[in-house]
Amino acid sequence: MNISVLGCGRWGTFHAWYAHKIGHEVMLWGREGSVHLQALSETRQNEYLTLPQEVALTYDLMAAVSHADTIIISISSQQLRSFCRQLAALGLDLAKKRFVLCMKGLEIGTGKRLTTVFYEELGTAMRVAVWVGPGHVQDFVRGIPNCMVIAAREMQLTKDLVTTFSSPLIRFYYGEDLLGTEIGAASKNVIGLAAGMLDGFGYGSLKGALMARGTHELSRLIEAMGGDRMTVYGLSHLGDYEATLFSPHSNNRRFGEDLITGKPFTKLAEGVYTVEALLELSREFHVELPICATVDAIIHQHKDPKEQLTQLFMRATKAE
């Protein structure tokens, strides 16, 4: 099968590497001037993996989209709306293709899920799914297996994509609740920021409480939005906690820790943006999100981190 990956960062290059590994013909696209694609063109390597010569590289978006029946999008979640407009401007019949969003986030300013943004810009007839769940590129390329989830509005599309991408390296599960899967996947990055802050203060033993309360507050939000509150306990959220709250490879955890210890951090930490969108949803659906509010107060309102975290975990006594 012909597969194109749009986006050549850490996860985009992994998806290209993985799709080739399991037998597909792969083209990887990067924006004109992308330093990531330039480096791959010169050495076939980045800091995470070596890309096989058989994976085609291109700056030509028309060529990449035309090449494939199945298209993986792996870019910053906040760029998705403008990127969808670029896709629409190509003038191709995109409804015949399958799209897989491999990002975890919500749109700032609207709180909208990524599939919602996709449908708004390209039409509700589009076939689009999300691919989320635990795992790190550094582990996958060493042959360490994991479980992930694919979810779509239509179960047949979910099943078809699971068949396309399953292998001994990644076992995929069918996501039956697209809304809960997307909210859970996006929000776990915010919990990761909080976990990193705890690490920065040497309060790692509080991560158990963070995990328990984090799943609880987000299950309430998912239910209020019309999803299944139990989805948060699956692979898209709780199942991704080890990779996000504990792993040294987690950008969100590292961001939170470095914020506390005063170290600069330059890589993408999606939770920084997602927390703003979650608070929009908190207000819209009248669901209290104390962990998200605390993370926002520290990162965006620049309030005292130790004071905010102490208040969070020492809130007024109440039933669990």
Rank of each mutant, 00 (worst) to 15 (best):
G262L: 01
R220F: 03
G200S: 14
E257I: 08
C147W: 03
G214H: 11
A152I: 11
V162M: 13
G234K: 04
N146R: 05
G234I: 11
Y174K: 01
N252W: 03
T231V: 14
I183Q: 10
G192H: 09
G234N: 14
L218K: 13
G202Q: 12
A195D: 09
S247T: 09
S219K: 11
G227V: 07
L259W: 09
N189C: 08
S219M: 10
L259T: 04
F201M: 12
L210M: 09
V190F: 05
T158H: 05
P145F: 05
V272G: 01
L245M: 15
Y241D: 11
Y241R: 09
V272R: 08
G143Y: 11
L245N: 12
F255E: 07
A185H: 04
V162W: 01
T164H: 14
E257P: 02
T261G: 01
V232L: 13
S187G: 00
A224T: 00
M225E: 13
G184Q: 03
V149K: 12
L178M: 12
G208P: 00
G226E: 13
L218T: 04
V272I: 13
G175P: 07
F265V: 00
L238M: 15
L259R: 01
A185W: 04
T181P: 00
L238R: 13
D199V: 07
F265M: 03
S236E: 13
A224W: 09
L157R: 01
F255G: 02
E217V: 13
I191L: 15
T231L: 11
G239R: 10
